[in-house]
């Protein structure tokens, strides 16, 4: 099948590449754009490891064709840290609050949390749990992931989060 030229803006930069229509967006991001921070977990839209930000919403890039993203604005984990290389508050909070163990789900978790905090800068614990319900973690039991997001939300609001990591 003939390849199609696809152009999109990824982490603020316009990029283009050739893709078969059946190429999944996650494969295009990882293999054509060489941005391998976006992970492939289940490939069945359950686990959320492939979560990216697409035109202002969190989506699972394994359940989208690259050609569907023509003209889209995408952010991946590579575009989360600040330009000078310092960590984004969410990354810093995941580090401080032990929000990861093996780290495989972390890029998806952070991308989802990044959008969640823009939609709802002061989420309750319950709202965080529902907000990340499309992202699976098999290590942490979620406790410290939830605390990491609470910690980041507090810091971004200029407040302190008193609880310690478990």
């Amino acid at each position: 099948m003939a390849k199609i030229n696809v152009t999109m803006t990824v982490n603020g930069e316009e990029v283009s590449g050739l893709a078969e229509p059946r190429t999944l967006l996650v494969h295009f991001i990882r293999e054509t754009l060489n941005l391998t921070g976006t992970h492939i977990g289940c490939e069945t839209s359950h686990c959320g490891a492939c979560t990216i930000d697409l035109d202002g919403v969190s989506v699972k890039s394994c359940t989208r064709f690259a050609v569907q993203a023509e003209g889209s604005h995408i952010r991946t984990i590579e575009g989360i840290a600040h330009a000078d290389g310092t960590l984004h508050q969410l990354q810093e909070s995941f580090r401080q609050m032990h929000g990861l163990q093996c780290g495989y789900c972390t890029p998806g978790m952070i991308l989802r949390a990044w959008r969640l905090l823009q939609e709802n800068p002061r989420p309750s614990e319950d709202e965080i749990r529902h907000g990340i319900s499309g992202n699976l973690c098999r290590c942490t039991g979620y406790q410290n992931i939830v605390k990491s997001i609470q910690h980041a939300a507090a810091a971004l609001n200029g407040e302190t989060f008193a609880e310690a990591a478990q």
């Binding site: 839209s45 919403v57 699972k60 989802r112 529902h130 907000g131 499309g134």
Partner: peptide
């Protein structure tokens, strides 16, 4: 229905 990412699309 499903989860936030799936409801988005």
């Amino acid at each position: 229905i499903a989860d936030p990412q799936i409801r988005a699309l």
